Deep mutational scan, measured.
Amino acid sequence: EPLWIRPDAPSRCTWQLGRPASESPHHHTAPAKSPKILPDILKKIGDTPMVRINKIGKKFGLKCELLAKCEFFNAGGSVKDRISLRMIEDAERDGTLKPGDTIIEPTSGNTGIGLALAAAVRGYRCIIVMPEKMSSEKVDVLRALGAEIVRTPTNARFDSPESHVGVAWRLKNEIPNSHILDQYRNASNPLAHYDTTADEILQQCDGKLDMLVASVGTGGTITGIARKLKEKCPGCRIIGVDPEGSILAEPEELNQTEQTTYEVEGIGYDFIPTVLDRTVVDKWFKSNDEEAFTFARMLIAQEGLLCGGSAGSTVAVAVKAAQELQEGQRCVVILPDSVRNYMTKFLSDRWMLQKGFLKEEDLTEKKPWWWHLRVQELGLSAPLTVLPTITCGHTIEILREKGFDQAPVVDEAGVILGMVTLGNMLSSLLAGKVQPSDQVGKVIYKQFKQIRLTDTLGRLSHILEMDHFALVVHEQIQYHSTGKSSQRQMVFGVVTAIDLLNFVAAQERDQK
Rank of each mutant, 00 (worst) to 15 (best):
I238S: 01
I238T: 15
D242A: 04
P243L: 03
P243F: 05
E244Y: 12
G245S: 08
I247R: 08
L248V: 03
P251N: 06
E252Y: 13
E253K: 10
E253C: 06
L254T: 13
L254S: 05
N255T: 01
Q256T: 07
T257G: 09
T257H: 05
E258V: 09
T260Y: 12
T260R: 01
T261P: 15
Y262H: 01
E263Y: 12
E263H: 11
V264R: 01
G266I: 01
G266R: 14
I267R: 01
G268M: 01
G268D: 01
G268L: 01
Y269L: 01
Y269R: 01
F271S: 01
I272M: 09
T274L: 07
T274H: 01
T274F: 01
T274C: 01
V275H: 01
V275C: 06
L276Y: 01
L276R: 03
R278G: 07
R278S: 10
V281S: 07
D282P: 14
K283E: 13
K283N: 12
K283H: 01
W284P: 01
W284H: 01
W284T: 01
W284A: 01
W284R: 01
W284D: 01
K286C: 03
D289R: 01
A292Q: 01
A292W: 03
A292V: 08
F293S: 04
F293T: 04
F293R: 01
F293G: 01
T294V: 11
F295H: 04
F295C: 11
F295L: 09
A296S: 08
A296Q: 04
R297S: 03
R297I: 06
M298R: 09
A301W: 07
Q302I: 01
E303T: 13
L305I: 10
L305T: 01
L306E: 06
C307D: 04
C307Y: 01
A311R: 01
A311G: 09
G312T: 07
G312F: 01
S313P: 15
S313W: 01
T314F: 03
T314I: 14
T314G: 12
A316V: 06
A316K: 11
V317S: 01
A318I: 01
A318C: 09
V319M: 12
V319F: 14
K320V: 06
K320W: 01
K320G: 08
A321V: 13
A321R: 07
A321W: 03
Q323P: 01
Q323R: 13
E324T: 11
E324I: 13
L325G: 06
L325K: 03
Q326Y: 15
Q326L: 01
Q329Y: 08
Q329W: 03
C331T: 01
V332W: 01
V333Q: 03
V333F: 07
L335R: 01
L335Q: 12
P336S: 11
P336F: 03
R340S: 01
N341F: 01
K345P: 01
L347V: 01
S348R: 14
S348G: 01
D349C: 07
D349F: 04
D349A: 07
W351N: 05
W351G: 04
L353R: 08
L353P: 03
Q354R: 07
K355S: 08
K355T: 04
F357T: 05
F357A: 01
F357E: 04
F357G: 01
L358W: 05
E360S: 11
E360I: 14
E360P: 04
E361Y: 10
E361H: 04
L363F: 09
L363C: 14
T364V: 01
T364A: 03
E365L: 08
E365W: 14
E365V: 10
E365F: 08
K366Y: 15
K366S: 10
K367W: 13
K367G: 11
P368Q: 07
P368H: 05
W369G: 13
W371R: 10
W371Q: 12
L373V: 12
L373M: 07
V375R: 01
E377K: 14
L378V: 06
G379D: 13
A382L: 14
A382D: 01
L384A: 01
T385D: 01
T385F: 08
V386Y: 09
V386I: 12
L387F: 12
L387E: 13
P388D: 01
P388R: 15
P388I: 01
I390C: 09
I390F: 06
I390T: 15
T391H: 13
G393N: 06
H394Y: 12
T395C: 01
T395A: 12
E397Y: 06
E397L: 10
E397H: 15
E397W: 09
L399S: 03
L399D: 01
L399C: 09
G403V: 11
F404N: 01
F404G: 01
F404D: 01
D405F: 11
D405R: 08
Q406M: 01
V410F: 09
D411T: 14
D411H: 07
E412P: 14
E412M: 07
A413D: 01
A413G: 11
A413N: 14
A413Y: 10
A413W: 07
I416V: 12
I416D: 10
L417N: 09
G418L: 01
G418H: 12
G418K: 06
M419R: 08
V420S: 14
V420M: 14
T421L: 11
L422M: 15
M425W: 09
L426P: 01
L426V: 09
L426D: 05
S427Y: 11
S427H: 09
S427F: 09
S428F: 10
S428D: 15
S428C: 13
S428A: 11
L429A: 01
L429E: 01
L430V: 09
L430W: 08
L430R: 13
A431L: 15
A431V: 11
G432D: 15
G432A: 13
G432S: 08
K433E: 10
K433Y: 08
K433H: 15
V434F: 11
V434C: 11
V434D: 14
Q435G: 15
Q435Y: 15
P436V: 12
P436S: 09
S437N: 15
S437W: 15
S437C: 11
D438S: 10
D438K: 15
V440M: 13
V440F: 06
G441S: 09
G441A: 12
G441T: 01
G441R: 15
K442D: 13
V443Y: 13
I444V: 11
I444L: 10
I444Q: 09
I444P: 15
Y445N: 08
Y445F: 09
K446E: 06
K446R: 13
Q447F: 08
F448R: 07
F448W: 14
K449E: 11
K449R: 11
K449T: 01
K449C: 14
Q450I: 14
Q450C: 15
I451T: 07
R452C: 13
R452E: 09
R452I: 06
T454E: 09
T454Y: 15
D455W: 08
D455L: 09
D455E: 15
L457I: 11
L457R: 04
G458A: 15
S461D: 05
I463L: 11
I463P: 15
I463C: 11
I463Y: 09
E465S: 11
M466L: 11
D467C: 07
H468P: 14
H468N: 14
H468Y: 07
F469G: 11
F469A: 13
A470C: 01
A470M: 15
A470V: 12
L471G: 15
V472M: 12
V473Y: 12
H474C: 15
H474L: 08
E475I: 10
E475M: 07
E475W: 14
Q478L: 13
Q478C: 13
Q478F: 14
Y479H: 01
H480Y: 10
H480N: 09
H480F: 11
S481F: 12
S481D: 08
S481G: 15
S481A: 14
T482P: 10
T482A: 12
T482C: 09
G483E: 12
K484F: 14
K484R: 01
K484D: 03
S485I: 15
S486M: 14
S486F: 11
S486V: 09
S486T: 14
Q487M: 12
Q487C: 10
Q487F: 13
Q487L: 10
R488L: 14
M490F: 12
M490P: 14
M490W: 09
V491S: 01
F492A: 15
F492N: 15
F492K: 15
F492P: 10
V495M: 14
V495P: 15
T496S: 12
I498R: 01
I498F: 08
D499W: 01
D499I: 01
D499K: 11
D499C: 08
D499Y: 05
L501K: 05
A505E: 14
A505R: 01
Q507T: 01
